[in-house]
C-alpha cells in the first residue's frame, strides 16, 4: 500500500481527476493549500500572491492505493498536471502502514478500494 501526495497547479485539478478516473482510481482527498518550491514564489508573471509574498496557491491531492495501482496513479497525475512550466508541482509516494474503513472495520488492502 502506498500513500500518494501530489502538489499541483490549482487549474489542473479537473484534468488530474479526469486522468485518475480513466485509470479507475476514484478516491481522492483534495485541498487548497499555499506553498513554495524552487521558484521561491516568483512564478509566472501573473500568479504571484501579493499578500503572502513568497507563497503560491496550489492544490494538494492525496490518494491511498494498493501497490498495483501506484504506477498508474503517478502516470495519471503527471499527465493531468504537466504544463511543462516551472511550478507544475511534485508527487510524493510514501509507504502506507495501514488503512481502516471506519464503517466495517476492514483493514489493509481491502479497506482502500
Amino acid at each position: 500500500m502506498k500513500y500518494i501526495i501530489a502538489v499541483i497547479q490549482p487549474h489542473r485539478v479537473d484534468d488530474v481527476l479526469d486522468e485518475l478516473t480513466k485509470n479507475e482510481i476514484h478516491l481522492a482527498t483534495v485541498a487548497n493549500i499555499l506553498g513554495r518550491g524552487r521558484q521561491k514564489g516568483i512564478s509566472e508573471v501573473y500568479r504571484s500572491h501579493k499578500e503572502a509574498g513568497s507563497l503560491l496557491k496550489k492544490v494538494k491531492i492525496e490518494i491511498a492505493v494498493n501497490d498495483d495501482y501506484v504506477d498508474a496513479a503517478v502516470a495519471a497525475i503527471t499527465a493531468g498536471a504537466k504544463t511543462g512550466e516551472i511550478g507544475d508541482g511534485k508527487i510524493f509516494v510514501l509507504d502506507l502502514h495501514d488503512c481502516i474503513r471506519i464503517r466495517t472495520g476492514e483493514k489493509g488492502t481491502d479497506a482502500i478500494g
Binding site: 490549482p10 487549474h11 489542473r12 487548497n32 493549500i33 499555499l34 501573473y46 500568479r47 504571484s48 500572491h49 501579493k50 499578500e51 503572502a52 507563497l55 496557491k57
Partner: peptide, 21 residues
C-alpha cells in the same frame, strides 16, 4: 483556455478575492 482555467481575477486583474491564510 489557460486564462479561463486560472480564472479572470488573476489573469485579467492580478488580484484574488479571497486569501487562504
Amino acid at each position: 483556455e489557460e486564462e479561463e482555467l486560472i480564472g479572470l481575477d488573476l489573469s485579467d486583474h492580478r488580484e484574488t478575492a479571497y486569501t487562504i491564510l
